[in-house]
């Protein structure tokens, strides 16, 4: 009895300790990023944790650099890049939801010829490394006039976001008994109201988790906007690179830009945390 409770407490302490170590390991890069973003150029390459914090980097990325060095472009357009990222990622997720939710439903419910092949095709979007498809894509994009447009970026992001949504939501829809839909049909509801009032609330955790992940993947994507976006539609991931030139690396500016860029993801993840854990452990794994 006595040893049992001691063992239990010991196990609790151990697992807490392990979590704390992992927590440090996982969050240290973020901490480092925040610290670097607060440093001035002189202190940049020191490992000192005690320094004179400055908001100069943040001021610079939003309102322009007062000390533009040789070859470094003034980066006061950062708000515009941020907006570009927001439009492209949000647009991509919305388009994926519009297309992916009905697709996932159809794949879960109906038996049609080539169903598994189709589902596999969606998944296979994720197989090829982006580098492999980017050259032909860029040729096609230039010919179609999609190069450097919001729509072009949103469209190419479907390669990233759509498979994720379809595969997570499909297993959710499969878990819902068709009897429920039939009961609602007998009750006298048109299909779209059944879908909206009964089915969507049931898949909401999966929907939230998949949409968030899709957003994160789209937001973090680098290679597609780098090649398919020009000066007009440049996202934060691509723009951040501009803080490093051959002459000088403004790593502190870059860090400040990264801190700002990660805010939407962090806010989103925290706000739907409740669904996230359930959504990912419940739906996706089962599929």
């Amino acid at each position: 009895m006595e040893t049992n409770s001691i063992n239990k407490r010991l196990a609790g302490l151990l697992s807490d300790g392990f979590l704390a170590v992992y927590f440090l390991f996982a969050l240290f890069p973020i901490l480092w990023m925040v610290l670097v973003s607060l440093k001035s150029g002189e202190e940049l390459f020191t490992t000192q944790f005690i320094f004179h914090p400055t908001l100069e980097n943040y001021r610079a990325i939003f309102f322009g650099d007062t000390r533009v060095g040789a070859g470094v472009v003034a980066k006061q357009e950062f708000p515009q890049y941020f907006l570009n990222s927001l439009i492209a990622s949000t647009g991509a997720v919305i388009l994926s939801l519009l297309v992916g939710v009905p697709a996932a439903y159809a794949l879960a419910r109906f038996n049609f010829k080539g169903k598994e092949d189709l589902a596999f095709t969606f998944l296979s979007f994720r197989f090829a490394p982006e580098m492999v498809v980017i050259i032909p894509l860029s040729v096609i994009y230039r010919q179609l006039g999609l190069y450097d447009t919001y729509f072009g970026i949103i469209w190419v992001y479907q390669l990233v976001t759509l498979p994720l949504l379809i595969w997570v939501l499909r297993s959710y829809f499969e878990d819902i008994s068709p009897d429920i839909e039939q009961a609602a049909m007998i009750d006298g509801y048109p299909w779209w109201r059944i879908f909206w009032n009964i089915l969507l609330p049931l898949v909401r955790p999966g929907l939230a988790a998949a949409a968030l992940l899709a957003f994160v993947f789209a937001w973090n994507n680098f290679i597609f906007p780098l090649v398919l976006g020009g000066s007009h539609v440049q996202t934060v991931t691509v723009a951040s690179l501009g803080y490093i030139s051959s002459a000088q690396g403004f790593f502190n500016r870059m860090a400040a830009a990264s801190v700002i860029s990660s805010i939407p993801q962090i806010v989103l993840a925290l706000s739907i945390q409740r669904y996230l854990i359930r959504g990912l452990s419940f739906g996706a794994v089962k599929g």
Partner: peptide, 20 residues
């Protein structure tokens, strides 16, 4: 006739209640 126009009711084996 569509199911809802027949005025029949069915109690399902699985109950098929609307969870939300």
């Amino acid at each position: 006739l569509e199911p809802n126009a027949r005025n029949v009711a069915l109690a399902f084996e699985t109950y098929a209640l609307y969870p939300p």
